[in-house]
Structures are given as structure tokens and as C-alpha cells.
Amino acid sequence: MPEVTTEEELADFAEALCLPARPVDGYRALMPDASVLDRYLAVFGDAQFGEYTTRLAERHARAGGRAYLARFARSCGAARPWHTGDVPFAFGNLDAVGADFLIGGAPDEHDRALSRRMLRSWADFAATGDPGRPAVSADTTPVRCWGVPVDHLADDDGSGLRALYGTSGSAC
């Protein structure tokens, strides 16, 4: 991935990804103190993973399927969490070689408690099909937001970011 550090590079990236200007402008408004790099990482992660995963879960639920959503909301220093940052937490290997890179340093007791909560949810889901939170339905999109020191259940991710994507998808 390129290191995007200027507004021009961010605009070029969004264009290459076929994103309309609205989401990129919206991230600037929702993250006024973030660096261009942090906004780029947010746009990239949400456009490639978060938004489309949520849309898939919602469509699956409307078709009669069952889906559960979660967001890994534990920040890495000043930055937002990134793709795969949840893996050491979900598998309980916070002390594995290389995990410090994904979690932004050595884990603390809040991190270890978060990992235990995530492990319990995954184990419950594997054993019973129920991760301990409501499923997405035709009318609601509950999201478990994993964070430190506590998690919360939201009706949606609550950040305002989903509204930036609307229903129009990409510009291409």
C-alpha cells in the first residue's frame, strides 16, 4: 500500500478506487484532527472491508439468513484500528511474535480483558451459533463494537461513516 500523505494523493486514491468525492470529504469533516494518512487508512479500510461487509450482512438478513456484525474499535495509539489488528485479540495470542506491530505495542491488562471477551464470543459462536449479541435483521443492523476498556452494542456503527456511502456505491 502506498503511504498517502497529501490531499492530492488521497484524491487520486479515491478516484482509482472509484469513490465519489462525498465519502472522502465526509471523512475530512468527521476526522478533522486526523492526518491525511489516518484518513486514507480509514477510507481504504471502510471502502474495502467495512462498508461492503455490512451491506452483505444486511442483504443476507433480508433474504432470510443470519449474520452478526462486529467492529474492532480498539485504537492503536492515535490511529484507528486497521485490517487484521483484531487477530491477536480474537485468537488470544497478544504475546506472539509480531503481535506488537498489529496492536501498536505491548498489550496491557485492558487488552488482555478485551481478548478474553472476544475469545468467549468466538467460542460461544462456534459451540452454539450465538456470539452473545443480536443478529442483523431486515430492519436493524446491530454491531458489537469491541473496545477498551469496554465494548458496546450499537444500532449501527454510529460513526456517521456509513451515511457517507449512501446506496450509490462506487462512481465507476
Rank of each mutant, 00 (worst) to 15 (best):
1 M>Y: 15
2 P>G: 13
4 V>R: 07
6 T>E: 11
8 E>K: 15
10 L>N: 00
11 A>Q: 01
12 D>E: 12
13 F>C: 02
16 A>C: 10
16 A>T: 07
16 A>F: 04
18 C>L: 12
19 L>V: 02
21 A>W: 12
22 R>I: 11
23 P>C: 09
24 V>A: 14
26 G>K: 03
26 G>N: 05
26 G>M: 06
28 R>F: 07
28 R>A: 13
29 A>N: 15
35 S>F: 07
36 V>K: 06
38 D>R: 11
38 D>G: 11
38 D>C: 07
39 R>G: 02
40 Y>G: 10
40 Y>F: 14
47 A>T: 01
48 Q>P: 04
50 G>K: 00
51 E>M: 08
53 T>M: 13
54 T>Q: 06
56 L>P: 03
57 A>L: 02
58 E>S: 04
58 E>I: 00
61 A>H: 03
62 R>F: 01
63 A>G: 04
66 R>E: 10
67 A>S: 05
68 Y>M: 05
69 L>D: 09
73 A>I: 06
73 A>D: 12
76 C>Y: 10
79 A>S: 15
80 R>K: 14
81 P>T: 08
85 G>L: 09
85 G>S: 13
90 A>W: 03
90 A>L: 09
91 F>R: 05
92 G>L: 03
94 L>H: 02
99 A>S: 15
100 D>F: 14
101 F>Y: 12
101 F>R: 10
102 L>T: 00
103 I>N: 03
104 G>D: 14
108 D>H: 09
109 E>G: 07
109 E>W: 03
112 R>C: 06
113 A>S: 11
113 A>R: 09
115 S>G: 05
115 S>D: 05
115 S>F: 01
118 M>I: 14
120 R>V: 12
120 R>Q: 08
121 S>W: 00
124 D>H: 10
125 F>C: 02
125 F>N: 07
126 A>Q: 07
127 A>T: 10
127 A>C: 09
128 T>C: 03
129 G>S: 10
130 D>Q: 01
131 P>Q: 00
133 R>Y: 03
139 D>Y: 02
141 T>L: 13
145 C>G: 07
147 G>F: 05
148 V>K: 04
149 P>E: 03
149 P>F: 00
150 V>L: 06
150 V>S: 10
150 V>D: 11
152 H>P: 08
152 H>C: 13
153 L>P: 03
157 D>E: 12
160 G>Q: 09
161 L>H: 07
166 G>Q: 05
168 S>H: 05
168 S>L: 04
